[in-house]
Design a binder for these strands. Structure first.
Lengths: 106, 106
DNA sequence: TTGACATAACACCATTTGGTTCTATATAAT
DNA sequence: ATTATATAGAACCAAATGGTGTTATGTCAA
């Protein structure tokens, strides 16, 4: 009971540059916490915290494999971000729409 | 001298739901701080802080007009977000690429 | 079975964040 | 001139964030 409501959404998850770097790393190759950590100057504990945030946002998934935990990219939640962006695209993507916006704005 | 380096980028600016709501409001219509504030339950001062963050990220611009300050949407910096997203699209946007990713990942 | 390795789980800390209230200043309206 | 309006800015605060180090647990290899 008392379902733990997710604290981090996609928008918050990608706000941190370290977490964006983690996502990039995982887009190249699934890898263990130790491997991921080796790319950063911060402690392994700190990296794990970032992985937990990304997991809560649904952007990665970790699977136990022996004594290692292998993390995978789980890109689907980025669709929410794309949807959000698509709405705003009309305001700058092409000059016709941009002009339309500027005229109608006032 | 000692140029004040920007503290907030686009990724951080859109991480907060209130700020995303402000962007949406401004996409509909340019408006004063008072008008923007009227849509939220938080204090005007808090709204101004959010506007400052959005301004630092280049997503809005405020222009003094008499005793009012009118804020406009400035959507161009969202392109950076779109560019970032575009890279990850290959991993989920169509099933062929997704399969390609899953196979090559291992 | 013993030692090394990989992760998990704490407890702790400084800074940042998102909010508040109060005061000051500039402009508009009567 | 006086009053009301709109914004600016300071001081303050609690909670969240991003980091640390230490300890415990589970797994693999010699």
């Amino acid at each position: 009971m008392t379902e733990k409501l997710p604290k981090y959404d996609v928008f918050q998850a990608i706000a941190d540059p370290t977490r964006r770097d983690v996502l990039y790393l995982l887009s190249l190759q699934k890898q263990s916490i130790a491997e991921i950590s080796s790319h950063f100057d911060i402690s392994r504990t700190a990296v794990v915290k970032h992985l937990n945030v990304l997991t809560e946002a649904g952007l990665v998934r970790g699977e136990k494999n022996g004594r290692e935990k292998i993390y995978y990219l789980q890109p689907e939640p980025l669709q929410e971000l794309q949807d959000w962006l698509t709405y705003f695209e009309q305001f700058w993507h092409n000059k016709v729409n941009k002009l339309k916006y500027i005229v109608e704005r006032d």
